[in-house]
Amino acid sequence: MPQLITTKPQLWALKLVIHGACLLPAIWLFYLAAIDDLGADPVKELIHFYGIGAVHCLFATLLVSPLSRWRKTPLLMRCRRMLGLYVAFYATFHILCFLVFEWQLQWIDVIDEVIRRPYITVGFIAWLVLMALTTTSLKLIQRKMGARWVQLHSLVYPAFALVLLHFYWSQKSPWNDALLYALAGTLLLYSKRKQLLAWVRLVK
């Protein structure tokens, strides 16, 4: 099986493509929402778009290591941190749109929602985890933390599960796309069960 990418320039090209694929739609949809050209309810559209964007980036991030192992392409791993940061980017805009446009910066009401609505609580906890991972993503911090960094960053798996639960729980009716995402996510977590069990033992 041939490697997917073998040279540095190929890696840079791939990174450029990822930047484009993540940034351009995020900016374009924000523009459409600002000029009221994104359906009847641009707020809902934007919140959903950023939320699902975060889910997509999260799947991509978690698929990097199996893909690079399968195609014996270690260079691929160099894209993972960047994809992980885009998860945080999308998730943060998802929350900002909820706070600023949906709730018009009514902090008290938003805090109330976060505490009292389980599906929002779950999503918020996932976001806090993502923020912990983001702030410790610098190479320097990674070196300093050593083995603890790996432990901390394995929290991406529980965060992933919480994100999928948040997505499914937010739906009005029981049969929807979020169920398919949850199914795919369960398969992905199942395929990583060995790492997960090792991590659980380590944390204990």
């Binding site: 929402a33 600002a34 000029i35 009221d36 050209d37 994104l38 009847a40 309810d41 641009p42 707020v43 934007l46 749109c97 446009f101 949906e102 709730w103 018009q104 009514q106 009401d109 109330d112 929602e113 009292r116 609505r117 389980p118 599906y119 729980w169 937010s170």
Partner: peptide, 24 residues
Amino acid sequence: VAHPRWSQASERIIGSGGIFSQKR
């Protein structure tokens, strides 16, 4: 009386304008 998953205390008005002219 809140819906079990969200508050019913206020509502977002679907009116004219984009995200910067929203009202509750």
